[in-house]
Amino acid sequence: MSKQKIPLRVLKSLRGLLLPAVLLGLWEYTSHRDAAHAFAFAPLEQVYGALRELLAGGDLWVNLLGSLQRASTGLLTGAVAGIAIGLLMAFSRIALTLINPLYQGIRQVPLLGLTPLISLWLGNGEPSKLFIIALAAFYPMVLNTYEGLRQVDLRYREVGQAYGFGRVLLFRRVLLPAALPSLLTGLQQAVPFAWLAAIGGELIFNAGAGLGNLMMSAELGARMDVIVVCAISITLLGIGMSQLLSLASSRLLRWQHIR
């Protein structure tokens, strides 16, 4: 029985790779069309060569770890701050009235547009980069925390009150589980934002260890192959983080999912 199932499962998981394979084939074809296309679409063999070169030199690891570390620190800071503010806004009308307008206004300003201000006030080094990452993670966390708590159905609350739940118990048993999906959605959005903000910050602000920095030096020499390797690494790491989060949230929300 199990012997029959395995090939089927393997086949099934391969189905998902069909589209990517087609796209890769298209890429390889395009890169060999002419010099202009080879300029933008680095041939896959060159990309592979660049990958080996970077691994051999240790460059890839150093920069990868640098980016990851930066992104995690910023993400943690931003997420914690976001949840805190979201909680505050959901439970205190005064906080909501005061914070909400400011939050909505500042949230809409693109992070890149704030670069000159951040550069002036925080300088061009690590603090600025961390600030941008934290800010990128902060926005969705606040929104989703607040919305999550706000959207909890009135009836759930009434049920909780009917059971005679005190405030803390109400929070733990009714609000938190009901708001958890939103919180996790917020986190699922915060992670890619924070990751891209980390790379973006490395591109904008000064040098350090990071995939963004690696991309920048590759751009100087027009090493598109290195850039593609970086882009792929960034993508893979981003996927990895999202997958981890997805798994975690599936487990946490097992009681709620219907399919």
Partner: peptide, 11 residues
């Protein structure tokens, strides 16, 4: 899904 998740993260 795989392509979707991959492309989503491409900078």
């Amino acid at each position: 899904s795989p392509t979707f998740n991959a492309l989503r993260q491409v900078p």
